[in-house]
């Protein structure tokens, strides 16, 4: 663990650290992320990704002592989602929820474990950006589908991604992140600390 630097400006070392941990976070969520290729599992990702991501995120927090690192981390998630072809909306959700999480964790001076946990919950809501293509311009889409391919297609799609699933998925992102955060903290204690990584 690095000493708290008086200087709160982000240094080159901090920026490199953010890049490394974002990559690790992604490699971790890839373990379950491939499920997203099967449409029926897409809603399930709002449960699995926050759980799996808890381990790398909590480890990342142990290296985070300055404002901005979590925001950049989260924004990078969104950008990475975008360039790997998972949609553009995660850039916005990444930035917003990253900033909120950063503010929250900073209010605990990057020490408070309760605020870290809640912060991870807030951060995980970035994931909702991935589901937004199913909801944005929904009306236009249904018109298009009904006109183009018949009402049946439109109803079938409605069944797959019903509107009322949206708040459920959003809440799932937050709640299961709390679970993931606890798992992550346990892993830090049980593994990373004893292994001498933090």
């Amino acid at each position: 663990m690095s000493t708290t630097s008086r200087n709160s400006k982000l240094t080159g070392k901090d920026l490199v650290t953010v890049g490394i941990y974002t990559a690790i976070y992604f490699a971790s969520i890839m373990v379950v992320g491939f499920l997203g290729f099967i449409p029926i599992f897409i809603p399930l990702l709002s449960v699995l990704v926050p759980i799996v991501g808890g381990i790398p995120f909590m480890l990342f927090l142990s290296r985070t002592k300055k404002f901005g690192m979590i925001t950049i981390f989260s924004l990078l998630n969104g950008l990475f989602m975008f360039i790997t072809g998972m949609g553009i909306y995660s850039i916005a959700t990444g930035l917003i929820f990253g900033l909120l999480a950063d503010l929250m964790i900073r209010s605990g001076d990057y020490q408070s474990s309760k605020k870290s946990l809640l912060g991870y919950g807030v951060f995980s809501c970035w994931l909702f950006g991935n589901f937004m293509p199913f909801y944005i311009g929904r009306k236009a889409q249904f018109e298009m589908l009904t006109e183009g391919y018949g009402a049946e297609y439109a109803t079938a799609l409605e069944k797959l991604m019903p509107l009322h699933l949206a708040p459920v998925m959003f809440a799932a992102c937050f709640l299961f992140a709390l679970v993931g955060g606890v798992i992550g903290r346990t892993a830090c204690k049980k593994h990373f600390k004893r292994a001498g990584i933090i």
């Binding site: 982000l10 953010v18 974002t22 990559a23 950049i72 981390f73 950008l79």
Partner: peptide
Amino acid sequence: DKLIIPIAVMMRFF
């Protein structure tokens, strides 16, 4: 640079 450096590192390290 606050974005460019982490992005470059992430792309390199992923």
